[in-house]
């Protein structure tokens, strides 16, 4: 039963779903390649997850359990809004729990808890073209992908090293999928890049405004570009999470006052909550300004 009168299950009409489904199947068959699709205007603005929403609406069934996160958190307004959209238009069960979800729509993060084979990640992608900042013309970037000519990106990374001593990309860090296509991992922090590699879950990416979908099948090689003498690395924090004490998750810096006092806490709210529920605890106190 549909909860919003006058609209189909999960909002999209069946013809649109078929078109997106066909695009997704080709995306899976050609890992990392951006499949153009007839992206529709959605009732949420472009740039606010319309690609992810169209992908989720196309794959969603009545028995799915949906989790929506933004910046790792289930409670950010955009995540709440998208979850509400599907609860209203599809009537599906929603959850905050990473383990219980069959579909996880995300903006900017991959959950800390490892995903399973039964799960599908749906990424909201603002700018799907990894070469876009180096070459804005799609007519040209399509050719470069066809030729697997990624020299532009290597030069850019090399110039970073020459200039800064290291690669200056901290998020949306480019990856090579299955040894063939250069791919933008949506702007997840590079901290999350290693999770893309050989992940048991199917990973789908939707860019509504740019009208493309792409995919990483389960157990697919995903390499973050690097150089032998400048291997890919991710950031770690000296401080553990002040709430749950974990030392291995991505931390948000929370500014507490105007005197420099702040705290580092998990960006993945479900992960943090679950750990706290299991009795883990952090310092619970801010880092005083002078301590840093």
């Amino acid at each position: 039963m549909n909860t919003v009168a006058g609209y189909n299950f999960a909002y999209l009409d069946e013809q649109t779903k078929r078109m997106i489904r066909r695009a997704l199947l080709k995306a899976v068959a050609i890992p990392g390649y951006q499949v153009p699709f007839g992206s529709r205007e959605m009732p949420l603005p472009y740039g606010w997850g319309t690609g992810g929403i169209q992908v989720t609406a196309s794959i969603l069934g009545r028995s799915d359990v949906l989790k929506v996160i933004d910046q790792g958190s289930d409670d950010t307004t955009n995540a709440v809004n998208i979850r509400r959209f599907f609860a209203q238009t599809a009537g599906v069960a929603t959850t905050d729990s990473t383990g219980e979800a069959s579909i996880i729509q995300t903006r900017h993060r991959i959950p800390e808890k490892p995903l399973g084979e039964h799960q599908i990640m749906v990424y909201q992608v603002p700018l799907p073209e990894p070469l876009g900042r180096l070459e804005p013309r799609e007519a040209v970037t399509r050719k470069l992908h066809a030729l697997a000519d990624y020299g532009l990106m290597h030069v850019k990374l090399y110039e970073d090293i020459a200039r800064y001593g290291h690669i200056a990309s901290t998020y949306d860090y480019p990856v090579l999928v299955n040894g063939r296509y250069l791919m933008a991992p949506s702007p997840i922090p590079k901290f999350d890049n290693p999770k893309l590699h050989m992940n048991p879950a199917l990973q789908l990416f939707g860019a509504g405004r740019e009208k493309r979908v792409y995919a990483i099948p389960p157990y697919t090689r995903v390499e973050s570009l690097d150089f032998e003498d400048h291997p890919f690395s991710v950031q770690r924090w000296d401080e553990p999470c002040a709430l749950c004490g974990t030392a291995d998750s991505f931390l948000d810096e929370v500014v507490l006052d105007d005197a420099g006092g702040r705290m580092f806490v998990c960006s993945d709210s479900d992960y943090c909550k679950t750990r706290q529920g299991a009795g883990h605890t952090g310092s619970q106190s801010p880092i005083p300004a002078e301590a840093t």
Binding site: A29, I59, A215
Partner: peptide, 19 residues
């Protein structure tokens, strides 16, 4: 049931090509 059956078959095809 065109809506649910199409979704179910699609998910099977998606799983088949993914795995």
């Amino acid at each position: 049931d065109p809506v649910d059956d199409a979704q179910r078959i699609f998910r099977a095809v998606l799983a088949a090509l993914s795995r």
